[in-house]
C-alpha cells in the first residue's frame, strides 16, 4: 500500500506534478490497483524466462548508410520556443 510520501516520491521521479489535494485520491486508487497485482504471487515463476517481446524478436541491425531524414525546419516546426536552429529550454544548471 502506498503512503502519501510514496506518492510524492513517485510523482517527483516521473515529474508529473500533482496538486496537494490530488495526493490522497491517487494514493487510494493506486493502492487499490496494487492490491490487484497480488494475485501474481500465486505463481511460481522462478524458472520461467521473462517475455520482453511476444515474438522473441532479436535486435535489428542495418548498414550504416546516410539517408535523407527530417529537415532541420521540419524537426523544429513544433518547437515551443526556438532560438535559431536550437530548441530553447529553461536554465538546466542550478547555482
Amino acid at each position: 500500500m502506498f503512503s502519501r510520501e510514496d506518492i510524492e516520491h513517485i510523482s517527483t521521479l516521473c515529474r508529473i506534478g500533482i496538486s496537494e489535494k490530488d495526493i490522497e485520491p491517487y494514493r487510494a486508487q493506486l493502492s487499490n490497483i496494487l492490491k490487484q497485482f497480488e494475485v501474481l504471487q500465486e505463481l511460481d515463476t522462478e524458472k520461467i524466462e521473462p517475455t520482453t517481446n511476444p515474438l522473441s524478436l532479436g535486435t535489428v541491425m542495418r548498414d550504416d548508410e546516410v539517408h535523407e531524414s527530417l529537415t532541420k525546419e521540419a524537426a523544429l516546426y513544433n518547437a515551443p520556443v526556438r532560438d535559431g536552429d536550437y530548441f530553447r529550454v529553461k536554465a538546466v544548471l542550478e547555482e
Partner: peptide
C-alpha cells in the same frame, strides 16, 4: 522541449517540466 504543450512560467527546467506534464 521539442513539441507539445510547454509551460515556461517556472523558475527552472525541472519545474517547467513538472508544470508542463501536470
Amino acid at each position: 522541449v521539442k513539441y507539445g504543450h510547454s509551460q515556461r512560467l517556472a523558475e527552472n527546467m525541472w519545474e517547467s517540466m513538472e508544470l508542463t506534464r501536470k
